[in-house]
C-alpha cells in the first residue's frame, strides 16, 4: 500500500465538483483506448479486493454503459450506469453516472474526462465530476473510505480462514 502520490484530487469545500488528475507514460490514443474499452476497464478500474464487469458498454456519442462491482466472492456490491454524451477520440469522453439502488434515485453525476497530450509518450488525464449537490459530492469522496474498508474486510477474511 505504498503511496507514490502521483494522483491529484481537488475538491474545494462547499462545491459540487471534484477534479482527479494524473499523468501517464503513454500517448493519448492508448490512454483513451483503456477508458473506452470494457475488457481493459475491467483490468484496472476495480478498487482493491473487488472486480468490475460490464454488461452494457456502448462507448460512442449517444451510447450507454452499465457495470457491476463485486467482492472477491462474486457478490454484487453496487452497480453503476449512465449515458454517454460525447466520445471524441482521443481527446474527450463526457458521460453521466448514477449508482443504482440508492434509497432515492436521481443522484446523477456529470463526468468529463480530458486526455491532454503532454508529449508523444505522455498524457495528462483530468476527470471533472459535477454533482447535483455538495452532499452528493461529499458522499462520493467518502465512498473512498468504503473501498478502503472492503480491502480491510478481505484481509480479515483471509485471517479468519487461516484460523
Amino acid at each position: 500500500m505504498s503511496s507514490n502520490r502521483k494522483t491529484q484530487i481537488v475538491a474545494q469545500a462547499g462545491k459540487q465538483e471534484l477534479f482527479i488528475s494524473r499523468v501517464f507514460n503513454a500517448p493519448p490514443e492508448v490512454v483513451f483506448r483503456a477508458f473506452s474499452t470494457p475488457d481493459l476497464l475491467e483490468q484496472f478500474f476495480a478498487p482493491a479486493g473487488t472486480t468490475v464487469k460490464f454488461d452494457v458498454a456502448d462507448f460512442r456519442s449517444g451510447g450507454k454503459y452499465r457495470y457491476t462491482q463485486c467482492d472477491a466472492n462474486g457478490n454484487a456490491l453496487a452497480a453503476f450506469s449512465g449515458v454517454i454524451h460525447e466520445v471524441t477520440s482521443p481527446e474527450r469522453i463526457i458521460q453521466t453516472q448514477e449508482m443504482e439502488g440508492l434509497p432515492q434515485a436521481g443522484h446523477v453525476v456529470l463526468e468529463a474526462m480530458h486526455f491532454e497530450r503532454i508529449s508523444d509518450n505522455q498524457t495528462k488525464l483530468t476527470i471533472h465530476d459535477v454533482c447535483m449537490s455538495v452532499a452528493d459530492r461529499d458522499a462520493i469522496i467518502e465512498s473512498g473510505m468504503a473501498s478502503g474498508l472492503t480491502a480491510i474486510f478481505d484481509q480479515l477474511d483471509e485471517v479468519l480462514n487461516g484460523i
Binding site: 503511496s3 502520490r5 501517464f24 507514460n25 503513454a26 484496472f44 473512498g144 478502503g148
Partner: peptide
C-alpha cells in the same frame, strides 16, 4: 478517495 484512484491508476499503468 485519493488512494482509491492512486491504486486504480497504478493498475492502469500496467495495462498501458
Amino acid at each position: 478517495f485519493r488512494q482509491l484512484w492512486e491504486d486504480r491508476f497504478n493498475q492502469l499503468d500496467s495495462v498501458l
